[in-house]
């Protein structure tokens, strides 16, 4: 059996150098998803593995007035442990709901965000929060919106030859922050995912509205969200019906299966209910 060669770089520059040299190297963040899905005593792994745990740049957590910077190697347990007010509520809640405690201490933000087969639970939350991610490669650094890590086919789109360094999450005040986990809570499967809805009101109208569902596919439609923005609160039945129809059409056009569309619509219904309850307070 083939033995993998492990590199443990201690700086970002060294990591990038290794990546250039070994294009097919497997980047090992927490590794929980890699090992979870290979139950053999000796898991089949690529010949080269680059372990990211000793790269200090990937571990840094910092904050300003406007945003929180999270190193890609922050553990999910760290995210939920930063405490109320230090992390946007939706992100803390999404992180706290992943797997069990023994897993959350190992699993990382980067690993969860860059799942190849499915979207991790942090993805819809970060996308709704308008988080941006910094990727580094030998040729430099670039920032991109987290939401762009979903392809047109609504499946994960993972950049290659680059490394996710950190994620910047803006602190915006939200009147509604709703996170709902779908499916079995203890580990992901084909029918599991996470829904996030964020909304903000101003002067009696809907000022901001975002709703996304991540799982095997990523369900979000900005045009429908835009249509809702500016509507008076509480939302009229016809506004809600029109938004629902718009989401349904958009997702059906893209070939999303009926169960996922139903889940999404049930989730936005709950969000609208929560908005109404908030407005009536």
């Amino acid at each position: 059996m083939r033995v993998s060669e492990i590199f443990t770089p201690t700086s970002l520059i060294e990591t990038l150098g290794l990546l250039r040299k070994h294009e097919d190297a497997l980047l090992w963040a927490g590794g929980t998803e890699i090992l979870r899905l290979r139950v053999a005593r000796r898991p089949e792994l690529p010949p080269t593995i680059v372990s990211l745990d000793k790269v200090p740049e990937l571990r840094a957590i910092g904050r300003s007035d406007r945003a929180l910077d999270l190193g890609a190697m922050s553990s999910l347990a760290q995210l939920s442990a930063l405490g109320e007010g230090a992390v946007p509520e939706a992100l803390a809640e999404a992180a706290a709901g992943v797997g069990t405690e023994g897993l959350r201490n190992l699993a990382t933000l980067g690993g969860n965000l860059l799942g190849r087969e499915r979207f991790g639970d942090l993805f819809p939350a970060l996308a709704c929060l308008d988080a941006i991610a910094e990727f580094r490669s030998a040729s430099g650094s670039r920032w991109m919106a987290v939401g762009r890590l979903a392809g047109r086919d609504r499946k994960p789109l993972i950049p290659t030859g680059e490394i996710l360094v950190r994620v910047r999450v803006p602190f915006d005040p939200w009147d509604l922050s709703l996170v709902r986990k779908i499916g079995y809570p203890l580990w992901p499967a084909a029918d599991s995912g996470l829904f996030t809805c964020l909304a903000r009101a101003a002067k009696g109208s809907l000022y901001e509205f975002r709703a996304a569902l991540g799982g095997p596919l990523f369900l979000r439609d900005r045009e429908t969200e835009t249509e809702l923005i500016g509507k008076r609160l509480p939302l009229q039945r016809r506004d809600i019906e029109s938004a629902r129809a718009s989401w349904r059409n958009r997702f059906e056009e893209d070939g999303v299966g009926a169960p996922w569309i139903e889940r999404f619509l049930a989730a936005v219904d709950e969000s609208f209910d929560a908005l109404r309850a908030g407005a009536s307070r």
Binding site: L37, V39, Y184, P185, L186, A189
Partner: peptide, 15 residues
């Protein structure tokens, strides 16, 4: 198969 194993779910304690 492995799929049935991976898909087998016990009720979580919190439920």
């Amino acid at each position: 198969g492995v799929e049935a194993y991976a898909g087998y779910r016990l009720m979580p304690l919190t439920a």
